[in-house]
């Protein structure tokens, strides 16, 4: 049996309390939410935090809702929302099916019942699915520290593998996704087996005005895409019409710009191929959804 090393445990009662505890215990303390990344790492003794700060009681980090500000709506997803809640959220289904697509292929039901959106994003595993999905959606992360809240684009959230802009004494509190009309989105993943980390995955979000792409987001998982993003392919598509040929070309451009590394999930050439193939497939499905609804 794998057992962790000794650690202290604190249970936070609110965001301010959690930040105070982070401040008190310093960089050797870690927040624990769902625990489905951190606890296994502790049992393997890859992670050896001195203190765990449990944020499972933080109700202000829970729930999925529509937030309105300055006449614009956004889908607000609390950092402590479990994967299962997002998977089953009618709001997600209605506005951003890419999130449902992604959640359906994250781990397995046992992990999804416990693991959280915030935990996944902050763990910042390069193979984690939600980072690409939120990148495609042009989402915004809301981070709170002792000095108050700040907002960071999902595309600027990660600073490297397993590294984010969230400071030692800060907490990711929620993710906001702006709601605009004419959208369609989809996520396509290749895994060796259900529940496995992605060999590669691609997410696409499109905002259409008739047949014209007014805005586009393409997120890529596990292929070494800068900021989880296929920016050159987005630039190519933005402002042009929805056509199969252009989606194929966007895939080609996306594949050209990724920097995948070979591992047991696949060689570099295969991952690069998938970056293109899955970009094209996600675009195709996102467009169908924008034009014909989420059943597509």
């Amino acid at each position: 049996m794998q057992v962790p090393a000794q650690f202290d445990y604190e249970r936070a009662t609110g965001v301010a309390h959690a930040i105070a505890l982070l401040t008190r215990y310093g960089p050797e303390s870690r927040l624990v939410a769902g625990g489905h990344s951190l606890i296994p790492m502790m049992k393997l003794r890859i992670a050896n935090p001195e203190t765990l700060i449990d944020i499972n009681d933080l109700d202000e980090l829970k729930g999925i809702s529509i937030a309105s500000a300055d006449g614009a709506d956004a889908l607000r997803i609390g950092a402590m929302v479990r994967h299962t809640e997002l998977l089953e959220s009618p709001l997600a289904v209605e506005h951003f099916p890419i999130l449902v697509d992604a959640e359906r292929v994250i781990a397995d039901p046992v992990v999804r019942n416990r693991g959280t959106i915030g935990g996944s994003l902050c763990q910042a595993d390069p193979s984690e699915d939600l980072s690409a999905a939120f990148t495609a959606l042009h989402a915004v992360a809301v981070i709170e520290g002792a000095d108050g809240r700040r907002e960071v684009s999902a595309r600027e959230f990660h600073t490297g593998p397993y590294q984010t802009v969230v400071g030692d004494a800060e907490i990711l509190v929620e993710v906001r996704v702006p709601i605009r009309p004419g959208s369609g989105s989809a996520y396509e993943k290749v895994e060796r087996r259900v529940g496995d980390w992605a060999v590669a995955a691609g997410g696409a979000a499109l905002w259409l005005d008739a047949d014209t792409i007014t805005e586009v987001g393409i997120g890529l998982t596990a292929v070494g895409a800068e900021h989880f993003c296929a920016a050159q392919a987005e630039d190519y598509l933005r402002g042009g019409p929805v056509t199969e040929e252009r989606f194929v070309e966007a895939g080609r451009i996306a594949a050209e710009h990724v920097r995948p590394t070979a591992d047991q999930r696949g060689p570099e050439d295969y991952k690069r191929h998938l970056a293109g193939e899955l970009t094209t497939r996600a675009l195709r499905r996102a467009a169908a959804r924008a034009q014909h609804g989420t059943e597509a």
Binding site: R192, V199, G266
Partner: peptide, 15 residues
């Protein structure tokens, strides 16, 4: 015959 290996095999470059 993982997805990567099937794809490579189709291209005549098995792993």
């Amino acid at each position: 015959l993982t997805p990567a290996h099937v794809w490579r095999a189709m291209r005549g470059e098995p792993i």
